[in-house]
């Protein structure tokens, strides 16, 4: 057996991972310690969470949401999970299994909403009925249901598993279009307002490679397979571009995103048109909206009267969206 040559930066023991952006290698123990430090730093820097917060974590069964839930519990926060069954064929069946197993094994509370059972439609059908790209109806649905569950359940903060790569890819897209509206709102913390819960992203200082490694080292079983509707998604191609840059210039993703947050975001305060919008309650569900009926209720109406569309029909087209 040939031992790995690289040694842990902290203890000089055999390394399990190389992190070029830190110009360092780590053993399992000190890798976990490094991740924890990054999350604690993000939580403190952006005033994400306090000890008395009641936290709801949006859980998909993938690496990021399970990693962030695990980290918050590990750091002593009280955090429940919410899983939304999106009805994306086998993918949803399997992802729900991972989320449930994680919660049961750790004695955590997992709330569940099922689109088909509770609202009479699923994401493939919503995409077909509304003629929107799957990720667009899916994103709208998840945002609405996570917000609603957080507000209804009396949670003070909604946590999502967005990592550094997610945020850098979104920033890249917003920058390519100089979309000031989106740029002005692309922050790791959105304070509660207009009936929306406070939303935070504790993983913004960790890359996807690091959150996946966290899961492997901590023995968290997560769904590795990709959502069948993701292919063609623009975010994925932005991530590839950024990782090509990262490979030749380690640390680029972190400086692109984290320096945006430090240096650019303050200049954009007050530039979002939505800050000044008057929102009222949706006449159907009460959720904050600019119109009389919110876009989720519109979607429910269109999609629940549509004949169910099997995921295979849409997945083959491979069209995603922002």
């Amino acid at each position: 057996m040939v031992a790995a040559a690289s040694k842990c930066r902290t203890c000089r023991g055999p390394a399990i991972i190389d992190l070029p952006r830190h110009n360092a290698n780590f053993c399992a123990e000190h890798f976990i310690e490094m991740c924890r430090r990054q999350v604690v730093k993000a939580i403190a820097q952006f005033a994400m969470l306090g000890p008395d917060d009641r936290v709801l974590v949006a859980v998909s069964g993938g690496k990021d949401s399970l990693a962030v839930w695990d980290m918050l519990i590990d750091l002593g926060y009280q955090a429940d999970g919410l899983y939304v069954g999106l009805g994306i064929g086998d993918y949803s069946e399997t992802s729900g299994g991972y989320a449930r197993r994680f919660a049961i094994e750790r004695g955590l509370r997992l709330l569940e909403v099922d689109l088909r059972d509770d609202y009479g439609f699923d994401v493939p059908t919503a995409a077909a009925a509304s003629r929107r790209a799957p990720c667009s109806s899916c994103g709208l649905t998840k945002r609405h249901l996570f917000d609603k569950a957080a507000v209804d359940g009396g949670y003070t903060v909604l946590v999502t598993g967005h990592n550094l790569d997610d945020e850098a890819a979104v920033l890249f897209g917003n920058t390519l279009r100089w979309d000031v509206e989106y740029l002005a709102r692309q922050l790791p913390v959105l304070e509660a307002r207009h009936g929306f819960p406070k939303k935070v992203k504790p993983l913004v200082r960790l890359t996807e490679r690091e959150t996946a490694a966290w899961c492997i080292v901590r023995g968290i079983d997560y769904l590795v397979d990709e959502c069948p509707m993701a292919s063609g998604n623009r975010h994925l191609s932005y991530k590839e571009v950024l990782n090509t840059i990262e490979a030749s210039s380690p640390g680029s993703k972190a400086s692109f995103y984290l320096n945006f947050v430090d240096n650019m975001a303050p200049l954009l305060v007050g530039k979002s048109l939505s800050d000044g919008l008057q929102l009222s309650g949706c006449s159907n569900c009460g959720a904050p909206t600019t119109g009389s009926v919110c876009s989720f209720c519109h979607l429910v109406e269109t999609a629940s009267s549509h004949v169910p569309v099997p995921v295979e029909l849409l997945a083959k087209k491979g069209r995603g969206s922002r």
Binding site: C135, D165, A212, C227, H235
Partner: peptide, 8 residues
């Protein structure tokens, strides 16, 4: 193991 996931 690929670590990139897509989606909104």
């Amino acid at each position: 193991r690929p670590v990139i996931s897509g989606g909104a």
